[in-house]
Structure formats: structure tokens, C-alpha cells
Design a protein around this nucleic acid. Structure first.
Lengths: 296, 296
DNA sequence: GTTTCCGATGCATAAAAGGTATCATGAAAA
DNA sequence: TTTTCATGATACCTTTTATGCATCGGAAAC
């Protein structure tokens, strides 16, 4: 015979009442059933849990130890069942969210904050990554929702625009264009550019390069940095200029001058993207939340 | 039907194997029995724990949550059973030890340290208290072992001497006797004494006062402090002199002069004392440990 | 097409848990 | 002192639960 939760439940009630008859009534069973269950429990443990006589029933030291442990086990069981149920209906769980520098600098923090208010049981696990990486992680089911540089038009994915940015040119203080109120792309044709690695930043390049080509030049990338902070750092060192968004520029520490680009009409979009099938419940809730955001 | 530990055990093995037949073999039951147990578990939880087809079995998100919680519950159960067994044979448990200033200043720390080495599962719970208090707590089963000022000759108690102290006179710097190499009790007949309250320190007074009476005087207590540190403090303030033990004097901060008492032969004893019946196992182990100390 | 492996189901059996009646014992009441 | 009452333990039987065996239906491998 093995010890089960039933033994613990019966034991705990008896440890509370210290009276077999009353305890058996509280448990809605007969007194002999309780007696036998406690006997089986003690036999299995090979430990006397109660000192009994006709006059009194009291816990032994071992009984007290078992009461504490048993209570913990029962509480743990209840909590586990509750959590499991909540996970099964999507009230609890983990949501793996990928984000780019562009997303985290602007729309994402407020979005996640509001989502957490609506679904406090869901833990958001943020994963930083460029667009290419995130799309691959979505395919590999390493990510539930990605926040990437759009537009995303891949089969098997759905997406929704959450943020649009008008790009600006950023030059170091003292640069020949630093005193201009605004610039055009053509003004930048002969400049040295600082940017991210071509593979990782492919989606941003897909947005920027066609615009430059239309303005009649191909940007000359002379320095590469891993992320936007690194890019801004290299620009402030005078290594070149760059084109990023205003929200990113807000993170810069100084030594930089932002210049509006007067001839760019197309905005850069950041989209939430997710696999169109087999969405986990937390991800489904997030998608619903995004739709709800749109309406309100 | 209710969820039991059996369900969890079966579930965990299946969650490991992800194959009903192999899991049932590991559990030494038939495959249909496992299938039905998992079905019952899912029905009771109203949660699907496994996605199953003929080709694969895999955990759902809820199943993963249940696996973590279930593992914790099982571990907790195992730990509880183990602890209960250890308590029942006295390998684990709590030992409530009372001690006086005299005991803690000398023999007790080393004694407890060695006891802990021998019985690492037993947690010693120290309770500070004067002799009178400790004896009452022993009667009320609030204490397992007392370390008190002896000799204790009370019915229902056993005791064992663990420490003997030769008392010394302690005077403030600059006192008229401070330059003496030693003093006799008679030299102190006209001094003001600092000591503890008569009720609480009764056992110490029972030792000291007969000696003074034999020397022809009754000490004049002019100040009372709660404990020996307080007494030493008042002495160093010049409120009077006192008679305590050398080990207590070692705790003094300064401004005091110890003087041997050349005419006292009787030493002050500190004894371990315990109820002679119904000893808890940890206390029994401590008593055995004390006897063993004696032999070695 | 046949075989093989998978999880699910029907049915009979074994094991566990429960209920009723009753006993032995010690304390309290008469 | 005797009687009564309440307690926990036991005996015996019933109900519930768990298990094993045989088998099904379906997908993949050969």
C-alpha cells in the first residue's frame, strides 16, 4: 500500500480535531474508516503519529512534523491544480515577445504594460533580436510574437502595424550639415554612413536603400555597429552620419544633431507579427488585445 | 473521483517517456491502466495534459505547468515522509535548551557545538532564563534541558554537573580594595553590593548568602540589575561591588578589577537538568551525549 | 498489401475504501 | 459500588476504484 493525498487529508483533520469521531464527521466518513486509514498511514510510515487512549488523542513529535509537511504538500497540490487550470484557459502562462531597437524605443513598453494589466497572470518574456532573427525564431517556435521592422509579407505569418516612424538624419556636432534646419537625401550622397551589419539589418536596408536609389546614390557604409546605440556612438565619434528614427535618437547621450529629411514621404513601419496557425493561448490573447487596442 | 499521488506519479513518468507503452512498463502496469489513469486525471482537472495521436504524444502548455507543480508535490511528499521518519527515531527534531548567564559564558557553547556535530539533524533552540524560570518551564514542558545554577535536588528531575566556578569579587577601578591581591568575605562585610532581583536569582543567593553568614555578615544589596552584564555595568559605575564568576567577568568591557576570594572553598555548580520521565528523543540523545562526555 | 506500432475501449477480476454492528476500556454519573 | 456514556478498535460485508487481458481502429513502415 502507498501513501496518498487521502491519507494526508484525513490525517490533517484528525490532527486538528484530536477526536476520531468528530474528525470522521467532518470528513463525512464513518469513524472506523478513519481509524483504519490512520492505521494504514502509520503502518506505511512505520511511525506512530498519534498517542491515543480512550481519553485523549494527541500528536507525537513525528506527527507534528508530518502535519507541517503534509499541509505543505496539500497546499502545493491545490496550487498546482489551480495553476494548471489557469494555464489551460490562457489565464496564466508565458508569452515570448521579440523586439527590435525600434520597437523597444517607442510603442512596446506601453503596449506590454497595458497587456499586463489586462492579463496579469501571463508573464512576458522579452527577447531582443533583429527582424531576421525574430522571423526565424517564430518559425522555430522559439517566439510567440515578434516586433519587427515591416512590412512583413511572409506566408504563414500575420502581422499588424503598431508603430510608424519618419526617419531622420543624425550627424555629429560640428558636421558641415549640422546647422541646417533640414536636409534631403540627395544632400547625403557623398557622406560616409554608419550602420548595422547588412544581413542583420536587411529589413531596414530594404526600406532605406530604395529611397536612396531614387535620390540617385548608393549609401557608402564605412562603419558597422551591432545595434543602434553603437551606431549613434560611432556617429558622435565623427565616423560618419546615419539615418534612424526619432525615438532612437532620444536615447542618444549627446554630441549629435538630428536633421529632418524633408523629401521622405514613406514612413518606416514596425509590426507585430505572429504565426498564423497553432497560436498558444497567451499569444492568442495578445493578438486579441492588439485588435482591441485598434478599436479603442 | 479525486486526484491522488498515484495520478501524479504516472503522469510524470509519461511526461518523461511521451509513450504510453514504455511508460506503463516503467511503472510496471499495463498500458490500458495508464491510459485510463491519465484520462481520469484530465477529466478531474478538466484540462488536456497531452496532445496524443498514433504517432506522437506531447505535453500541452498546461501539461508542462502540471509537470513542474506535480514534481514539486512529489518531492515535498518524499521529504515529508523522510523527515517524519527521522523525527520518529530522534534523528531530527528540536531541542529546547535553557541557559543562565553562567552557563552561556563558559561550558555551554562548546557543549552545544559538539552535540550538533554528533546529531546534525537536531536543531537546538536556546532559551535564556534564570534557574527559577527554567525549572518552571521544565515542569510545563516548555523546555527539554535546562542549564541552571545548582545543586538541583527537586523530585522528578535528574541533573548532572557540567561546570564549576570559583566565585570572585569584582570591584570598580579605584575602589579601596582594588589594589589588593586577594580578599576574604569578611573584608566585604561593610560594602554595598550590586546584584540581581532576589526572586530570580534565588539559587545564586542560596549559594552565596550562607557563605557570607558564615563570615559573619549579611550582604547589603543596594542596586539590582536584570542580568550579569547589567550588574557589571553598575559596578563599573561605582554603585557597589559584586560577587560573580570569572567567566562572567571575561565579558566585562573595562573599568573593573577582579579579586580572588581566598576563603571560599565551595565552588558554584552549573548543572544540566531534565525531567526524569517522558523525555523526548532529542532530549534523550542529549542526556546520552552528556554521559558520553563524562566517560571520554 | 501486409505488418507493426500506437493509444483507446470492453469486460472481468483484484484491491482499496467505506459502512454497519459490535467490542473493550476507562471516565463520569447515579 | 454500579451504571452509563463516550472513545477507539475490530469483524464482516458492500461499494468503489484500479488493474489486466483481449481487442479495436488507425497510421506508418516494409
Amino acid at each position: 500500500m502507498k501513501i496518498g493525498l487521502r491519507h494526508i487529508r484525513y490525517f490533517l483533520v484528525l490532527a486538528e480535531d484530536l477526536n476520531f469521531r468528530r474528525a470522521s464527521e467532518h470528513l463525512h466518513i464513518s469513524q472506523p474508516a478513519l481509524t483504519r486509514t490512520i492505521q494504514h498511514l502509520e503502518a506505511e510510515l512505520q511511525v506512530t503519529l498519534f498517542d491515543r487512549s480512550q481519553n485523549f488523542v494527541r500528536l507525537t513529535d513525528a506527527g507534528r512534523a508530518f502535519r507541517e509537511g503534509g499541509q505543505r504538500v496539500l497546499n502545493g497540490m491545490e496550487a498546482t491544480i489551480d495553476l494548471t487550470r489557469r494555464v489551460s484557459i490562457g489565464e496564466a502562462g508565458a508569452l515570448r515577445v521579440g523586439y527590435t531597437d525600434f520597437a523597444i524605443a517607442d510603442a512596446l513598453p506601453e503596449l506590454l504594460k497595458q497587456f499586463h494589466q489586462r492579463h496579469p497572470g501571463i508573464t512576458v518574456r522579452p527577447h531582443h533580436g533583429v527582424t531576421t532573427t525574430q522571423l526565424q525564431e517564430l518559425r522555430d517556435d522559439k517566439l510567440d510574437i515578434g516586433f519587427v521592422t515591416g512590412p512583413v509579407r511572409q506566408p504563414g505569418f500575420h502581422s499588424r502595424v503598431v508603430q510608424t516612424d519618419r526617419p531622420i538624419c543624425i550627424v555629429p556636432e560640428g558636421h558641415r550639415l549640422a546647422s541646417r534646419a533640414s536636409v534631403t537625401l540627395a544632400d547625403l550622397a557623398d557622406e560616409d554612413f554608419v550602420h548595422g551589419p547588412a544581413e542583420a539589418w536587411a529589413h531596414f536596408y530594404d526600406y532605406l536603400f530604395p529611397l536612396c536609389r531614387k535620390a540617385g546614390f548608393q549609401p557608402r557604409i564605412v562603419q558597422e555597429a551591432f545595434n543602434s546605440v553603437g551606431i549613434l556612438g560611432l556617429v558622435s565619434c565623427g565616423m560618419g552620419i546615419t539615418i534612424l528614427t526619432e525615438s532612437i535618437y532620444d536615447f542618444a547621450t549627446g554630441g549629435l544633431v538630428p536633421l529632418p529629411l524633408s523629401d521622405i514621404a514613406e514612413e518606416m513601419v514596425t509590426e507585430a507579427v505572429w504565426a498564423s496557425e497553432n497560436l498558444r493561448l497567451p499569444a492568442q490573447h495578445f493578438v486579441d488585445f492588439l485588435e482591441h487596442q485598434h478599436k479603442s
